[in-house]
Amino acid sequence: MSDLSAFRRAKLLHVFNTFFDVNGSGEIDEKDLEIAIQKVCGARGWGRHDPHYNKTRDALRKLWDVLTSKADTDHDKQVSVEEWYAAWRLDESAGREWSHIFRDLMFLLEDASGDGHVDVNEYVALYTALGLSDQQCREAFRRVQKDDAGEVTKDKFDELWEQYFHSENVEAPGNYIFGKFDF
């Protein structure tokens, strides 16, 4: 497969910086994992004894294990931006297993109520906890769900996910699933 376009690299970099490299070191490591668990669970009000906390922690640890097995090519227990890009190129040719683990975790995190759909308040709470502005999150959600009566179901989320990671169409609604709309 050819290299990733600048547009797709920008989208992937947003995810890398927002969800994975939460300490801003330029690489993803286990310290980022622990900070992400605290930020996400804290934003939802889930303490260490809450089942949601444990489920989120376990899912993020599983994602970390899968990510490092796919992306940490130099085995230094860190994932650089270039290794991150390479993992997504590999994902396209090797079945998307780890991407689907990440997708399902993100839906779990966005659907805090567990009712099978994401509404604007759930969406904004998660992404503002990860450092994005309230206004930007609300606009991104509006663009994501414009045809879905104010909510995003799991099936719709799966479709949007594929658009985000694999589409070159700058107008695709899936480009906005991570709280940002300007790449």
Rank of each mutant, 00 (worst) to 15 (best):
D76T: 11
G45S: 05
D76K: 13
T56P: 12
A43Y: 02
E30C: 02
R48V: 13
S80F: 11
L12F: 07
N54C: 12
D21W: 03
E82N: 10
F16H: 04
R61I: 03
L13C: 00
H100C: 08
G47M: 06
G95M: 08
L90C: 02
N17A: 07
D21I: 03
H52W: 12
K70G: 02
D72G: 05
L12N: 01
L67Q: 15
S25L: 05
R9Q: 15
K31N: 07
H100Q: 10
G42A: 04
Y85N: 06
G95N: 08
V15M: 11
K11S: 05
L13N: 00
K70Q: 14
S69F: 08
W64D: 12
T68C: 15
I28D: 01
G42F: 08
T68W: 01
N54P: 01
W98N: 13
T68D: 05
I35H: 02
P51F: 10
V15T: 15
D58Q: 14
N23E: 09
D29V: 03
A71Y: 08
G47T: 13
D91R: 11
L13M: 04
L33Q: 04
V66Y: 14
R96H: 13
D50T: 11
R8G: 00
S99Q: 12
W46K: 14
H75L: 15
F7K: 08
E34Y: 09
A10S: 10
I37W: 04
R103E: 06
A36P: 01
E34F: 03
T73M: 13
K70V: 12
D72I: 07
A86H: 07
A87L: 06
K39A: 00
K55C: 13
W88P: 05
K70T: 10
F7C: 03
I35T: 05
S80Q: 10
R57N: 13
G45C: 06
Y53R: 04
R57D: 11
V81N: 00
F19E: 10
D21T: 02
V81Y: 11
E83V: 04
N23H: 13
P51A: 07
Y53F: 14
Y85I: 11
A87I: 05
R96D: 09
Y85E: 05
V22G: 07
D104C: 09
R44V: 00
L90Y: 07
H14L: 06
L13A: 01
D32G: 00
Y85F: 15
A10G: 06
V40L: 10
